[in-house]
Design a protein around this nucleic acid. Structure first.
Lengths: 221, 221
DNA sequence: CGTAACCTTGATTAAGATCAATTCTCGTGG
DNA sequence: CCACGAGAATTGATCTTAATCAAGGTTACG
């Protein structure tokens, strides 16, 4: 993201950034509080989620090291940002102890960006990826049943892991995974069992072994 | 969107743009075909949607005059665009006869944008709005039942209409509305009836009269 | 005025949420 | 090093919402 900055700009940048650590379960921000800047995860992981009035939760993203979150409001309306007229678009919670994040204040960052068309393009490109991701997410949630979603998650996760042993290791709780897949813990548990009974996968705690990846892909459509 | 361009740039722009009309039901693009540019609706309306393998459809947006769609792939990867390595992120269909759209070719537009930081910021701001919209959409779909979604839709639609007669006029078919609200025609019909029976609204064809907006808002949470 | 598209209503079914009861796992303090 | 307890996960029984299947009714338009 910052490869378009020259040395002096990087220095400016490093001066405005503040770092902070959180413990597992700590809230980084709520979707009700005024927007002051975006974040970059350095160590640990963060979940971005929404909550319904009756307490049900849906996780939109899991953010891992090297990735940023909450950049969207930066570009909605400059006046509103300086007047703290925007809120964060969702809630953010640290998922691990000693999660380390950088916070980048909005006003200073916008100033930096105005002189850096390259940085601007980088942000656009990041947004585009995020948007395609959200579109895909909606598609998954609205057009597929839980079994397909779980199968799809396993396949995608394996592809992204870079492994070649037909295994994935979950790095979040099954409760969070359920929430991410738009279901609940019990249903996820039953779905894993069903996939195991049909011989497609083996589940042992946080380790999932894929026995038949092509059938799993087919199932996920 | 184009207020940042000077006269000569506007001229360049108007030279690269192509206009086209579609009849109701005509496909503008499929999510399988190579990306060549984005669109601006001038007259009529367009639905952006995804289809599941078994034919179920979910509408992501309804685009009305003055608004653009399919700008996302512009910023994903320049090399891939010129090599036609990207597809459209969803399907687009005209909803009315004589729907008039402008098509803006990707490669030319990117060239134009590179010299216009202002245009770049405009795009970012558009993206931010779109992203907040998508986040809200996911929240609605995942955390609320059909009744809440319908109530919420009516309230939002009324707010955006600028009317003051407690009435909204649907400008899409109920089938499309159902698909947009993540349900099916029959369920939408029953939900309207339920809301009518409880006295919150009156439905007469495409006209919906709101009898009690505060209770309707409360219901939508 | 006839036909096709659009919409409503009813009966039935199925997926997944909820409620409830255990069991498993793992970190912490004694 | 073990025991305890809390959080995490599994399993079962039941309930609810909304999808599906099916049949008619309405509307709009050539």
């Amino acid at each position: 993201m910052f490869s378009g900055l020259n040395d002096s700009e990087l220095e400016v940048f490093s001066n405005i950034v503040r770092e902070k650590t959180y413990d597992k379960g700590d809230m980084i921000f709520f979707d009700t509080e005024p927007y002051i800047g975006f974040y970059i995860v350095e160590v640990g992981s963060v979940k971005i989620f929404k909550i319904s009035p009756d307490g049900r939760e849906h996780i939109l993203h899991i953010i891992n090291p090297g990735n940023s979150f909450a950049e969207v409001p930066l570009f909605e309306n400059y006046e509103k940002i300086v007047n703290e007229g925007f809120t964060y678009p969702a809630n953010a919670m640290a998922l691990e102890n000693d999660t380390l994040v950088f916070r980048v204040p909005a006003v200073e960052f916008i100033r930096l960006m105005e002189d850096n068309p390259k940085l601007c393009m980088k942000m656009l490109s990041g947004f585009a990826k995020r948007m395609r991701y959200l579109t895909r997410h909606i598609e998954e949630m609205m057009l597929k049943d839980v079994t397909k979603r779980v199968a799809g998650f396993i396949v995608t996760e394996y592809m992204n892991s870079g492994r070649n042993d037909n295994t994935i290791i979950l790095n979040i709780s099954k409760n969070d995974l359920a929430s991410y897949l738009g279901t609940i813990l019990e249903t996820l548990s039953r779905t894993f069992k069903k996939l195991q009974d049909t011989g497609l996968i083996d589940v042992d705690g946080k380790t999932i072994h894929i026995n038949n990846i092509s059938d799993l892909k087919k199932l996920a459509s």
